[in-house]
Design a protein around this nucleic acid. Structure first.
Length: 440
RNA sequence: CGGGGCGUGGCGCAGCCUGGUAGCGCGCGUGUUUUGGGUACACGAGGCCGCCGGUUCGAGUCCGGCCGCCCCGACCA
């Protein structure tokens, strides 16, 4: 994209409402714009990040054998009356009435709907297990939205649902999702710790939260260094092999991890001192097994091998996709701006033409941009060099290809790595080779 | 939902106490200037002062109601 023709409204000053780093930076870098309390419009650069994260989540879900579908945002209240949650959910649920005075709601989650879909189409134990997920907008009418997209009312979430014939099967699905999550967070460039969680209003007795580490996180976390040492790749764990899943699960649950609320000082002291890690964290995912809660309440049964009906065991698995945009920034930024991990950056590189209007730098900049256009944002504005440097740092491109009259005459450019600040002067070919010209 | 605060050009703010024809910085436009980390100067455009009502000769300013937004707490992906 050419910045001069792009809706990327960077700001020098911070809008008054933004308190935390990620919110300030998202507004300043032109990623989002608030349209109502806790509701945001995603501008082009922000949408690219959101999509990049969603793509990684999707790839790992697919790799774990989950199948993508798409359920609607608006749901009928009757479905929720079946499970009893229409009454239980309270004020957080946004209730809507249509012209025929029928009760509808803007979905905060989809257990009822997925159960309804399964019960009307899955009849035999031979069709299970299955895991289905979608990436869809949700709405929870938070009393107090805050922290920008980290705690918005409207948010993009990947929610997945598993159905197994019995508990042992459900445990395997649960472990698959846990491994898929660890792989997902690893690819997003953050450290994630799974922690035993309360099962909350949805019920069940097997549940983990995924906390990613960020210095400004909402809660204090204590964990064993083991979590940082595990190799989650397919080479180490085969996600289709129950034995590997068990080994993985034992690794995850065998080491200490807790937020301050549940911190157990005695247990903590059992951890070898050199392995104790402490930090701040942000919850970005939550998985839980809920057994037959919905299949019973909503009459979802399949015929078992013995010819008798069985209520499948379910689990659900959420990742806050839009929240992750903010969380990743909390985990990776500095005074100057965002430092995107390569895997999610809206643009791999910013091409900075330091002397717009100069024939030599213009020609070289156009040439470089032409080769990088799929992955770069070309700053072709008639701005001073300082403005371009500052905006590039703010937007957080992993690479900056800096093209000024000093090197352009010799056909050389400067390549800056945002994360480290390192700069080196290179030929165009070498710079392009380092940046890469294809989308990651 | 309890407590606190704020709504004035695109953004950040002053003006309100003590009513009298709306101001500053940034940004934006034009020109000159500058040219490797937010250049300088000049000129210029841009505001039903959140909305409704009241008091008053006169309301951004005083009074009442409403709406919106933010912060702290309790609650959540």
């Amino acid at each position: 994209m050419r910045l001069s023709r792009s809706l990327v409204p960077t700001l020098k000053e911070v809008p008054a409402e933004a308190q935390i780093a990620s919110h300030r930076l998202m507004l300043r870098a032109g990623l989002v714009r608030q349209t109502a309390a806790g509701i945001y419009a995603w501008l082009p650069a922000g949408l690219r990040v959101l999509n990049n994260i969603a793509d990684i989540v999707r790839e790992e879900q697919d790799a774990a054998g989950a199948q993508e579908l798409l359920m609607p945002t608006i749901q009928a209240a009757d479905l929720w009356r079946e499970s009893g949650r229409y009454e239980d959910y309270g004020q957080e649920m946004l209730r809507i009435t249509d012209r025929h005075k029928r009760d509808l709601l803007y979905g905060p989650t989809n257990e009822e709907m997925i159960t309804d879909i399964f019960r009307s189409s899955v009849r035999s134990y031979k069709e299970l297990p299955q895991i289905a997920y979608h990436i869809q907008w949700k709405f929870r009418d938070e009393v107090r939205p805050r922290f920008g997209v980290m705690r918005g009312r409207e948010f993009l979430m990947k929610d997945g649902y598993s159905f197994d014939l019995d508990y042992p099967g459900a445990v395997i699905s649960y472990r698959k999702m846990m491994l898929a999550y660890m792989r997902t967070f690893q690819r997003l460039g953050v450290k994630a710790i799974p922690m035993v969680a309360d099962t909350g209003p949805i019920g069940g007795d097997l549940s983990h939260e995924f906390i990613i580490l960020a210095p400004t996180g909402e809660s204090q976390v204590f964990y064993d260094a083991a979590f940082e040492e595990v190799d989650y790749s397919a080479g180490n764990f085969d996600i289709t092999a129950p034995d590997d899943l068990a080994r993985f699960y034992d690794t995850m649950t065998g080491s200490y991890a807790a937020t301050d609320e549940k911190h157990d000082t005695a247990a903590w002291e059992q951890v070898e001192a050199s392995r104790r890690r402490e930090g701040r964290g942000i919850e970005v995912g939550h998985i839980f097994y809920f057994g037959t809660k919905y299949s019973q309440a909503m009459n979802f049964s399949v015929t078992g091998a013995d010819g008798k009906p069985v209520n499948p065991h379910g689990g659900s698995y959420g990742v806050g996709v839009s929240r992750l945009v903010g969380a990743l920034i909390e985990a990776s930024h500095d005074e100057a701006g965002i430092i995107w991990p390569d895997s999610v950056a809206p643009f791999q590189a910013g091409v900075l033409n330091l002397k717009q209007g100069d024939a030599v730098t213009d020609a070289l900049s156009e040439d470089v941009y032409g080769k990088l256009s799929a992955v770069a944002l070309y700053d072709d504005r008639s701005e001073r060099a300082g403005v371009k440097f500052n905006d590039a740092d703010l937007m957080g491109h992993p690479w900056q290809v800096i093209i000024g009259p000093r090197g352009a005459a010799a056909g050389r450019v400067e390549l800056k790595r945002r994360a480290t600040g390192e700069r080196e002067e290179l030929s165009v070919e070498d710079a392009l080779a380092k940046v890469g010209t294809k989308r990651l």
